[in-house]
Design a protein around this nucleic acid. Structure first.
Lengths: 346, 346
DNA sequence: GTTAGCACTCAATCCCAAGGAGTGCTAACA
DNA sequence: TGTTAGCACTCCTTGGGATTGAGTGCTAAC
């Protein structure tokens, strides 16, 4: 038993596609005329009535046309979309300039995505959770300040100033550096446990307080990366869609974009429910973010290996052009994978 | 000869204050009732008629009340505002947590400002143009990568990866480090000229290409800081003011906030026309940014000494609460000065 | 110089009628 | 039995008065 026979499916498809285009409720006559079914509007009406009863479409009010319900969109996304193989050329060009600065690349990407789709794009820096220490160095910067530089496997560099009571002599510094590197290199956040720490401090002797500071810095590095950076672009695009452009909704949404914290929730959600290569689609209430209940949300995860990954997302009206969006995301995702991979090889 | 006698001044003041509150055109009767002038509405009308002729107020349409013109606001800001000595307590608390990460502090500040004023706040990181190199270090991170760490006088740290064909031995690395530090320390971007560069390369011998890379990185550091970081907060606050909340204007404004480039223009403008300790007020068309012609803009510059300075700005409707805004800015400005100063002393 | 009074203007609001898009239902048809 | 034409009905939208009310300008009197 299947809920929808072929004709109903076709009609539903036609309704949704039409609605994606126009944003207006679509009536039986429109479908009757502009589909290849050759059915009268009356027949369509009967079918539509069924579809409504089944929950795939709904009427904003009696005597209006029908619009897709969340269930309808879901069916569309899962079953009706054609795989398009659009060429996304521009991105590559954007990508190629300046690969060196990750942050720039990500911002650029967000921009391209937003421009390509006319929706809002968000993208997170890869979280290097479970990342490992690769290189660590203390330098005497001036009388009272040490600079700790930490490089991780993914070639991400962090620095932290450490204030000291007085300057260390070169020899001590060298010893400390050797000690730190031999003890910590190759370790991830989880692997640096109390045992490691105790041993380190013991060996550091009177400079154990410096070791403490370095470890704090290290913790800071690993932790700071939990609260990840989120870049958004095209936030104002949502104002283009009348169904979102009332000051109440728009304001809530824009706030969500500004308060990146909420987006982080989203990211975590996405990462949790990932089907690896998959692209996630959240329609209306399905979204983990309350404010987005009138929107749809398409997310993808990109990989860097070693447990590092980031999230890309597009936020738009429910009647978004899912095909185009998913296509863009797919291409971008693969390109990001490639860029970071290349970067690592280098 | 002065253009406005005392009574006209009082009336203008009353009109503006009332309009700041309500956002509605204000009529003669209102002024007559709610001011201490004890004049009939008819008299007020006559005066208002004069004020209109003089260009301080205007009518949206015949038979509406009056609203302040840009000239009116300007007069208000220059002559009518009372110095308030509001206590801004919250800020200090916010400030005290986590002084270590400048970026965080600035974001926090922007947030506080936006929350305090209900307008949009922007704040730029201090530009360390004409900043000097204080410490410089090359480290071998792995087989084929050197890490250059650069610390400037202001304790701002930058790093850059440099790819090499093969690993350098320790001795060479040490030599290079000494060479770089002795040659470049204490120099600002302008002071590193062709002569310096030539001398450096000569002394580096076969490793002159590495010196090149380091210099490139250095240039990058100095240059990157030209395109400064701008943090905004409360961008959606503009939606609260009906006069800005039509989708056309709102969208333009929000775009300006998203495209931080435009804000940078603003910053430069502010820096250029600074009267050192001064607070700058741009009303309507006076603003250097076209999109903001329906807004007012209040900016302040904070100092770090050594030619480093940043900008704080508040963007809101023309009828913004200038007193409150300027007060907030003043307090914040002084606190920022203090924080960074303290940070440097440390 | 100030004020009361009055006629006038004009945006905003409400109401109502007309229009139209779309539906559901029924009856007829193939 | 599925399809279709026809018709009554619903209800949003549009547009045109009419009404209201805030506010003005002007005049004449105090």
């Amino acid at each position: 038993m299947q809920e929808l026979d072929e004709r109903k499916t076709k009609i539903l498809n036609a309704i949704i596609r039409n609605y994606l285009d126009t944003g207006e409720p679509v009536g039986s006559r429109t479908i009757s005329k502009y589909s290849d079914l050759n059915l009268s509007s009356a027949t369509i009406r009967n079918e539509m009535s069924d579809l409504e009863e089944l929950g795939y479409i709904l009427q904003p009010h009696t005597s209006a046309g029908r619009i897709p319900s969340d269930k309808g969109y879901r069916f569309y996304v899962d079953n009706l979309m054609k795989e398009k193989n659009q060429e996304v050329t521009e991105m590559k060009e954007f990508m190629i300039e300046h690969t060196e600065r990750m942050e720039q690349v990500l911002k650029q990407m967000a921009k391209v995505l937003a421009a390509n789709t006319n929706y809002t794009a968000m993208i997170t820096a890869p979280s290097y959770h479970r990342n490992k220490v690769k290189f660590l160095q203390l330098s005497q910067v001036d009388d009272k300040q040490l600079l700790a530089v930490i490089v991780t496997e993914g070639n991400l560099v962090k620095n932290k100033m450490i204030s000291t009571r007085e300057a260390l002599d070169n020899e001590t510094l060298l010893k400390l550096n050797i000690l730190l590197n031999t003890s910590l290199n190759g370790l991830s956040a989880e692997e640096i446990n109390l045992g490691t720490i105790a041993r380190l401090k013991e060996q550091a002797g009177i400079h154990s307080n410096i070791v403490s500071d370095v470890l704090d810095a290290l913790a800071g590095v690993f932790q700071e990366d939990e609260e990840l950076e989120v870049y958004t672009s095209g936030t104002t695009n949502i104002l283009k869609y009348p169904e979102l452009n009332d000051s109440q909704k728009a304001s809530e949404l824009l706030n969500a974009f500004e308060e990146k914290k909420q987006l982080v929730t989203l990211v975590n959600e996405t990462l949790a429910s990932q089907e690896q290569t998959g692209i996630q689609v959240y329609i209306g209430d399905e979204s983990p973010i309350q404010n987005m209940k009138d929107c749809s949300l398409v997310t993808a995860t990109y990989q860097l290996g070693e447990g590092m990954q980031g999230t890309i997302g597009i936020i738009g009206p429910k009647r978004m052009d899912y095909e185009n969006v998913m296509d863009n995301l797919k291409t971008l995702k693969s390109q990001l994978d490639a860029v970071f991979h290349k970067n690592k090889e280098q």
